[in-house]
Design a protein around this nucleic acid. Structure first.
Lengths: 353, 353
DNA sequence: CTGTTAGCGCTTTCAA
DNA sequence: TTGAAAGCGCTAACAG
């Protein structure tokens, strides 16, 4: 086994230069196609490099050029399909531009987040895409932005910095309006974290849809703590067994819908006859479920690509760029999980006027 | 906005040393708790570093120490939930040990794979976890292993190097045996890539289960090209409309089952009455589908953690480690998607004896 | 067009 | 215990 790391001391550009019979500087220029080098020298050096299996040391290069061509990406959960699609796109676009992706995961832990940001700074990443930010702190960003490019991913880190946002407000507005039009008044909104942008925006859209009808939603039906399937399950079950149970659920988290679906089944009701459901993300589950589930989605690839491109643009030499803010729109895919509320429910105490 | 990267020239350990009134070397030793430093000096330096907001340059450190504390991970698709779970675990374990994760994605493209491995080598990662390897080439690994630690993730890169494997063979064997016991003879096996380890192992297990009964499977029912949902859909549809259609499907890819499910629905049959189905991965879909789907799974976190730990172990200074090979077992979760084949089918031409 | 040289920021001998 | 000095491998500025 070739596991003797010690033996094979990596060959350097110096070795290549020697073998090619030129000086160190010429070798460097030849390899980088910079400055003026004779075609002969360029050929000699390239040949020598190839033959010797020369692998340039990116660390040394970064050291000199003061740039790493690495972009960091911080998210709260890689396994969340909503993130996974984005990560994929970011990585693809970045790779195409010669950048590498340093990925880290906060798992929603603020301490981890802090030390990870520190890790990124130490590693001197050229840019940082922040898709997790426990406490969207502006002063933190201020410090950070002074040493590297920061792009906010669906987070309100600053009101003016570069950011890619999903239009959760409009999405929630549209979905709620749809349910209201079907006649629902007692609509439950389940979304993760009211402290983060997505949660805030959704709640605002939800409320505004009600306001537009001159009514107010029951605040007890807005649940913004849940995020796990288990929690959503018990949460939904509790709501369903209360005297004035909701007639519709707006499930705005990947795992949330699963919990709600189980709760509906568990409480002996059927969807959509007794309870209507709108979900987030257009997955195999929403498509194949019986009945197929109406859902709110957006283009993950577009989000990821936008993140990467905005980042690359702000990293490009042409200086003094304005911060960019991009808003990705959501679409509602109508399927068969929503119906007007059952007649019995309509007589029950509805929303306050 | 603090976007003037130019102004704030990063402060170095030299600045810290000066501020603390000690020499550069002492500052280094103080910060790293190495060698002998007076408690006073250590206090001075730490204070100065904190006050000045000193962030050590990992690049320079790596340059000197010849180690980056970065591990690369190469997979074929980050968005595949089967990988996402693993990545999450790898990242978590690595982070706990002070290592960073450099992630890249081949998208199943051999060229991308090559240049990504090159990227890793240039960046001088300390180790590389290979979860994608278009062509499991031993000679490539040989070269690679001579300069960094390599851990194979469900890939047969070498027969003796360090590797974490999932026991696809036994999983497929068990699932097939189960279907055979129910009376199925015409079982379709859909799995991605017969060129890669998982595919190979599954096919072997599938065949061996038949052999144990003294029969042979119909080779036309082994489909190892499909991986996408769309392809699986048309593939399954074609199989279902043939004169001797399969009575059971073993769907061993994340998206494959969705395609098969649609095909079954499309062909007007019902599951499990007309066709039995076994899926891979225990997801919301398999749990919530009507009927819930019997599936073959394994512990993603265990796989990821094992990868990381084996890697860390081989990176640890205590030299001359034996290559480790770990096999992760699969479990079959019995649900309601399998039944004996319909009587009509049993009279149809079965498997060859 | 090419060779020489000065660092990038850090760790680690080697003397003192 | 500490300071001085030598590089890690590379690029870029400066002479030639």
């Amino acid at each position: 086994m070739g596991r003797d790391k010690s033996t094979k001391s990596k060959i350097t550009i110096r070795d290549v230069a020697k073998a090619a019979g030129v000086s160190l500087g010429t070798a460097s220029r030849a390899l980088n196609h910079s400055g003026h080098v004779s075609t002969q020298a360029i050929a000699e050096v390239t040949r020598a490099a190839r033959e010797m299996g020369y692998v340039p040391n990116a660390l040394a290069q970064s050291m000199r050029t003061q740039s790493t061509s690495v972009v960091g990406l911080l998210v709260s959960d890689i396994a969340n399909p909503l993130y996974a699609g984005i990560i994929n796109a970011v990585e693809a676009r970045l790779f195409a531009a010669g950048y590498a992706l340093l990925l880290a995961n906060t798992h929603g832990d603020a301490n981890r987040e802090k030390s990870l940001i520190d890790l990124f700074r130490r590693r001197r990443v050229d840019g940082l895409i922040l898709g997790a930010c426990d406490s969207e702190k502006p002063e933190m960003l201020e410090r950070l932005a002074s040493e590297l490019q920061v792009v906010a991913l669906d987070r309100d880190i600053t009101t003016e910095g570069t950011a890619i946002h999903v239009d959760h407000y409009h999405g929630a507005l549209q979905a709620t309006r749809y349910l209201l039009k079907l006649g629902h008044r007692r609509i439950a909104l389940l979304t993760p974290g009211s402290t983060l942008r997505p949660g805030r925006e959704r709640i605002a859209g939800f409320k505004d849809a009600f306001s537009a009808q001159g009514i107010q939603p029951d605040p007890r039906l807005i649940r913004a703590e849940s995020s796990s399937m288990e929690f959503s399950f018990s949460e939904a079950l509790a709501l369903l067994s209360s005297p004035d149970a909701p007639t519709a659920f707006l499930c705005l988290g990947t795992r949330i819908m699963s919990g709600v679906l189980q709760a509906i089944r568990h409480s002996g009701r059927t969807m959509p006859d007794d309870v209507s459901v709108i979900s987030i993300g257009d997955t195999d589950l929403t498509q194949l479920f019986t009945p197929p589930i109406t859902s709110l989605t957006w283009d993950l690839t577009a989000v990821g690509t936008a993140c990467a491109e905005v980042m690359l643009r702000s990293l490009s030499p042409r200086e003094a760029k304005e911060p960019e803010r991009i808003l990705i729109t959501t679409q509602m895919i109508l399927r068969e999980s929503c119906m007007p509320p059952p007649v019995a429910a309509r007589t029950t105490a509805g929303a306050t006027t």
